[in-house]
C-alpha cells in the first residue's frame, strides 16, 4: 500500500496522524487525571467502567490507530534514512505495515473483550 502512495502523501498522513494523536492523547490524559484522580483511575473497577463508556472506547480506538500509524511510519522513515536499496526499502515497508496491523489488532482485541462487546 505504501508503494501506491508518494512520499509527500505519506508525510501528510504522518503529520495529520501526529496532530490528531496529540489531541486524542491529551483528552485521554485529562480524563485520567480528573475522573476521579490518577491513582483511583487505575483501580480495576474504574478502568472497566471506562471501557463500558462508548465515547471513551472510540477515543481509545482512535489513539490506537493514530499512534500506531504515526509511530510505525516514523520508524519506517528512520530506517529508510539509515540505508537505501530496494530489498531494504521493501522489507522495511512490509515490516512496518505488518507491525501496525498486528498492534492495532491486539489493542482492538483488548478493547472489545474489556468492554464486553465480544460476549454473546
Amino acid at each position: 500500500m505504501i508503494g501506491m502512495l508518494k512520499e509527500g502523501q505519506i508525510m501528510k498522513i504522518h503529520y495529520i496522524t501526529g496532530i490528531a494523536a496529540l489531541f486524542v492523547v491529551a483528552v485521554h490524559i485529562i480524563v485520567r487525571l480528573i475522573t476521579p484522580s490518577f491513582s483511583l483511575s487505575l483501580v480495576y473497577e474504574n478502568v472497566i467502567k471506562n471501557y463500558h463508556n462508548t465515547p471513551y472506547i472510540i477515543l481509545l480506538e482512535s489513539i490506537l490507530i493514530l499512534v500506531a500509524i504515526h509511530g510505525f511510519n516514523g520508524l519506517r522513515i528512520i530506517l529508510l534514512e539509515l540505508r537505501q536499496n530496494k530489498p531494504w526499502e521493501d522489507g522495511v515497508a512490509i515490516f512496518t505495515i505488518a507491525a501496525t496491523i498486528a498492534l492495532i489488532a491486539y489493542g482492538t482485541r483488548t478493547i472489545i473483550v474489556a468492554s464486553g462487546l465480544g460476549l454473546g
Partner: peptide, 27 residues
C-alpha cells in the same frame, strides 16, 4: 524520542491487555 515513545506505546498496549485476564492479572 520517537523510537522511545513507540517502544513505550507497544509496552502500554501489552500492559493494558492484562485487563482481559481479570482483576488479579491487572493488579
Amino acid at each position: 524520542t520517537g523510537v522511545f515513545l513507540l517502544v513505550y506505546f507497544v509496552g502500554h498496549i501489552y500492559e493494558t491487555s492484562s485487563l482481559v485476564r481479570g482483576e488479579n492479572a491487572w493488579n
